[in-house]
Design a protein around this nucleic acid. Structure first.
Lengths: 132, 132
DNA sequence: CTGCATGTGAGAACCATTGTCAACGTGGAG
DNA sequence: CTCCACGTTGACAATGGTTCTCACATGCAG
């Protein structure tokens, strides 16, 4: 059974108020700053539970830190700028089908997949190469 | 100036012999096992230097571990069994093109991507659900 | 060959994350 | 409503990958 506690509500609320990706540590600090005292372990557990329920989407920073954000339950992938970290969500029905088909061909079932695309966004490219 | 030392040569050699992604820890263990004694710190430094030089490509595991592979290697993706860990390498030209196109549409350049497909392989499915 | 800047490595430090466990509080049963 | 089983919490310790430290070793220019 999943109980609705003050702490879980608080964690979920943070993601309601915030756009984009945020780390568990950041959520924890934010709650503390806001007067809600919630244990760090609890934040980690809450965030993972939310991710398991598909309410949060997670990715990993280059430095290995896990970031979460409220996501449209809609399945999608990420296009991440290597330089500034800006993220664009992209959907790719064709890719989904391809992944399922390939997996099926190899006898795999119950398929899921992760796809991240990295690049340098226009803004950062201009910033890095401003000559002419 | 970059010096060519026994240790760096050894680390680079590991990626010459191996396909796919490998962690710094794994490279270290492999060198130790092979009789080449190289410090763990040195392996990390060597691997990062190689990645900086564009000789290695890096991704992060879900658990936050960094994996590297020789990037000149033929590009392909992994189909991993959730249960037994068996891995099948799959190629997907269509996916490559899709990723490049999508990234381009959003103004991103210098594209790279990672794609992992997870599922349960036939053998494991039979083992887990043996009932009639 | 020599000087010395650079590289090495054992171990400590770091830090995000996970585990531990006694105390707590939710929510269904009575 | 009250009880109390059991999911949940949180301070703290433990983990584990990665990075830092610093004394020592070693490529390489001159």
């Amino acid at each position: 059974m999943v109980r609705t506690t003050r702490q879980r509500t608080a964690v979920a609320a943070v993601f309601d108020e915030l756009e984009g990706f945020h780390s568990a540590q950041e959520v924890h600090a934010r709650l503390r700053a806001g007067g809600d005292s919630v244990g760090l372990s609890t934040v980690y557990r809450a965030v993972q539970a939310l991710a398991d329920d598909g309410e949060l989407d997670s990715i990993r920073t280059d430095s290995g830190e896990a970031l979460y954000r409220r996501c449209s339950t809609q399945h999608h992938h990420h296009l991440v700028c290597r330089s500034c970290g800006r993220t664009v969500e992209v959907a790719g029905p064709a890719v989904e089908r391809w992944a399922d088909r390939v997996a099926d061909e190899h006898g795999f079932a119950d398929i899921s997949h992760t796809l991240e695309i990295f690049g340098t966004c226009a803004a950062c490219r201009n910033a890095v190469v401003p000559e002419s």
